[in-house]
């Protein structure tokens, strides 16, 4: 997670561990690429800010785009859940509370990626109109 003071670089750290911060940074850098491609494909390339039903289905019928979006869901969910967990653990909660937060975040991550993956696969199987 972020630091409070910029000047010294290490005056205040959040309770997220250094390994967690490193994975957060790495997944964040991947997301710059994933989100850039997503914004281009979904909001610019089609010449309209909204991507409607037919264009989404056409897009998801391509195996590589399907794989891209599944990986996107997995990485962005990790980044989101890890960040959210870090923020919650920085609040006034005890060690036991932090352990519960860890369990809850793992559960949330699993639910999100399973749901996102199944949704992407099911959408890819919708026949083109």
């Amino acid at each position: 997670m972020a630091e409070v003071e910029m000047s010294s670089g290490r005056e205040v750290r959040s309770s997220t561990g250094s390994l967690g911060r490193m994975f957060q940074a790495a997944s964040g850098l991947f997301l710059i690429f994933f989100l850039g491609v997503h914004l281009y494909v979904a909001h610019i390339d089609f010449g309209h800010p909204i991507q409607f039903f037919t264009s989404v289905i056409e897009n998801m019928h391509n195996f590589w785009w399907l794989a891209f979006f599944i990986v996107f869901v997995w990485v962005i969910s990790y980044h989101a859940v890890n960040g959210l967990g870090g923020i919650i653990k920085d609040l006034n909660i005890g060690e036991k509370g932090k352990a519960y937060v860890n369990y809850a975040m793992v559960a949330l991550y699993i639910v999100t990626v399973v749901y996102g993956t199944i949704l992407a696969v099911l959408v890819a199987r919708i026949p083109l109109p």
């Binding site: 409070v4 910029m6 969910s77 989101a80 960040g83 923020i87």
Partner: peptide, 22 residues
């Protein structure tokens, strides 16, 4: 200072993006 502003806004923006993700 700007350091604290950057830090706090990073957290706020992160929470907004998590909400939008779902």
């Amino acid at each position: 200072g700007i350091g604290y502003f950057a830090f706090a806004m990073h957290r706020f923006s992160g929470l907004v993006i998590v909400f939008y993700l779902y």
